[in-house]
Design a protein around this nucleic acid. Structure first.
Length: 586
RNA sequence: CGGGGCGUAGCGCAGUUUGGUUAGCGCGCGUGAAUUGGGAUCACGAGGUCCCCGGUUCAAAUCCGGGCGCCCCGACCA
């Protein structure tokens, strides 16, 4: 479909709205793609909606190709369903909750594991109906504490979510792999430069999961990547190998340090307080964090300037861990929170796990398990014993890659897709079963797979723009070509109209800027919107019967094309641009 | 939820400290002129519950109290 700009809902903003911080937010507002209705709630104007429909179509084609079936589930879910899975409370304030006239509670769906599992348990009764993958594309609601960056983190947004059901592990693996491939194809077709990383499952639950990330300075996620072997993981998940010299370090007995000494540290609890009080670096402290894992108390030791990654501790112990409550800590250490230390804990049956980095420390500071006191000159292997060294803290740039001898770099990124193996996380609590070939009732093995449709739009803008505006990949640009007549009436306009008609005939989605504006205004708007192929009808028509055809991304290298060959040239550019996106898919 | 900032025309802002004409400027918008290769120019014009409610005062955009909304940082979060 093509359009005359004078007829389209299009008002570009010359100045940047004060509310927009991120470049994608600014450009989408300025180029008349979105308007805000409330914090994190946006109207998609004609340009945005055209792009979104293209993204939706690409995703839909790839889901269909992978054998998934499209459905559409309600936005509004009864509370009971979420209470059944335990997520009515677990999801917390992120759920948009509302009541009907009878006072019955509902929520606006932030994701659809509950309704889909309910659907499956009603309809899928036999292994003969498996495997099956159902997906939908629709609006999701999450009452984010802090919406941000326009479409990047909205409270109402468009998402594609798919759910697979399999009879066994192998089937689930196959479904997961099929989605991984479908995602790779879809994102390539959208022109997104992405990386696939290992991640933590978060509130969705389940076992293995992968995130599709686009590296961007403004991204909210941190990922670590090995430049040598390509290992990549979300910071929540990233492992690191033991630092160089670790094996030697733990063989030393650490008995040669200065004598252990107790010092008074009245009211000094935090790492910052203690280190400044004692005038030492935070890296000379060891934090002793008390956790409860399935009733068992565990002490985790990390360097004062490091941050414990609970998920790692959980993984090492093979159990879910929760930070011990104040009462538990006081009971164990006989001291208030803030003065816990490792000395004497082993005698109380507490397991001590220390981060690799502790192995290299000597004469360090720990809590004394006594109010207002710390030990200085503490040495492990002499003053207390460590049961296990492990990778406990968040990885950082410069850490060693866990898969090879390379080094990790840390990057900011935007998450555009996430795929999960759920196993029986939902089928079990919701009693969703089928009868298998052996006549036994079994829980479905599920997977779930999300793509942030509206986030893709803002992500593209975030990573593909210049000082003048957006640079769209052709696959998701609102239009393919943009005709700019330098004058708004007369012979040039007639030529422009002729080209407009020619382009429509050959199936190019075209904008013609038929507004009575000065050329400068038209050029600015054309670059701002960022349609990939630009056709400028100017004085070269009069001089030699040629118009200028160029690419938005490379404006400085125009081609001059006779008027009657423009359609052919644009068609061939279009084909070329599509092929660049995904040559192996054609 | 903690910290910070903001709320005056569609957008960007001044005016608020020290209350006092008819609330201003730029852009945009409308009409007209002229113009048409990178947000030129001129003339005329329209457009405001100064976020809301209450209070103080002869007088409130301005002072006081309460509320709401928005943005940023943090915490949290597919």
């Amino acid at each position: 479909m093509s359009v005359r700009l004078s007829q389209m809902l299009f008002v570009s903003l010359r100045e940047v709205p004060a509310e927009a911080e991120l470049i994608s937010h600014q450009l989408l507002l300025r180029a008349c793609f979105i308007r805000k209705l409330a914090a994190g709630v946006y109207t998609y104007l004609p340009l945005a909606w055209r792009s979104l429909l293209k993204i939706i179509n690409i995703v839909r084609e790839e889901m269909n190709r992978a054998g998934a079936q499209e459905v559409l589930m309600p936005f509004m879910h009864p509370a009971e369903l979420w209470q059944e899975s335990g997520r009515w409370d677990e999801y917390g304030d992120l759920l948009m909750k509302l009541q009907d006239r009878q006072g019955r509670w509902f929520c606006l769906g932030p994701t659809h594991e509950e309704p889909i599992t309910d659907l499956a348990r009603q309809i899928i009764k036999s292994y003969r109906q498996l495997p099956i993958n159902l997906y939908q594309i629709g609006t999701k609601f999450r009452d984010e504490l802090r919406p941000r960056g326009g479409l990047i983190r909205a409270r109402e947004f468009i998402m594609k979510d798919a759910y697979s059901f399999d009879r066994d592990e192998e089937g689930m693996e196959r479904s997961f792999e099929a989605m991984r491939q479908a995602y790779i194809r879809a994102f390539k077709r959208c022109g997104l430069p992405f990386v696939i990383v290992e991640a933590e499952a978060g509130a969705i639950g389940g076992t293995e999961n992968l995130e599709f990330m686009v590296i961007a300075e403004s991204g909210e996620d941190r990922l670590l990547r090995c430049s040598k072997c390509g290992y990549a993981a979300n910071r929540e998940r990233a492992e690191r190998r033991p630092p160089a010299g670790f094996e030697e370090a733990i063989r030393e007995t650490k008995r040669n340090g200065k004598p252990l000494q107790k010092v008074l540290t009245p009211n000094q609890r935090t790492v910052d307080e203690v280190s400044s009080f004692l005038n030492v670096q935070p890296s000379q402290l060891v934090k002793t964090l008390i956790y409860v894992a399935d009733g068992e108390i565990v002490a985790a030791l990390v360097r004062g300037d490091h941050e414990l990654n609970e998920a790692k501790l959980s993984r090492i112990l093979g159990k879910k861990v929760v930070m011990a409550e104040a009462a538990t800590i006081e009971n164990l250490t006989n001291a208030p929170v803030g003065f816990s230390g490792p000395i004497g804990l082993k005698e109380k049956g507490v397991k001590l796990i220390a981060d690799y980095d502790i192995a290299f420390m000597s004469d360090f500071v720990v809590g004394a398990n006594e109010a207002d006191a710390h030990f200085i000159n503490t040495n492990w292997g002499r003053d207390f014993y460590i049961d296990q060294f492990a990778d406990l803290r968040f990885a950082d740039k410069g850490d060693g890659c866990p898969r090879c001898d390379g080094t990790l770099e840390m990057l900011n990124a935007i998450e555009i897709g996430h795929i999960f193996k759920l196993g029986t996380r939902y089928s079990e609590p919701m009693r969703a079963t089928f009868v298998d070939e052996d006549g036994k009732e079994k829980f479905f093995l599920m997977g779930c797979y999300g793509i942030g449709i509206s986030r893709i739009l803002s992500t593209i803008v975030e990573v593909s723009h210049d000082e003048d505006g957006i640079i769209f990949p052709i696959s998701i640009a609102p239009f393919e070509a943009w005709i700019l007549p330098v004058e708004s009436e007369g012979d040039l306009m007639e030529v422009a109209e002729q080209i407009y008609s020619d382009l429509q005939t050959v199936g190019i989605e075209t904008v013609i800027d038929d507004r009575d504006e000065r050329a400068g205004v038209k050029f600015k708007d054309m670059d701002l919107v960022g349609v990939p192929i630009q056709v400028i009808v100017g004085r070269t028509v009069r001089e030699r019967g040629e118009v200028e055809v160029r690419l938005r991304r490379n404006r400085s290298e125009p081609k001059y094309v006779p008027v009657n060959q423009v359609a052919e040239t644009v068609s061939s550019l279009k084909r070329q641009l599509f092929e660049e996106l995904s040559p192996e898919l054609r």
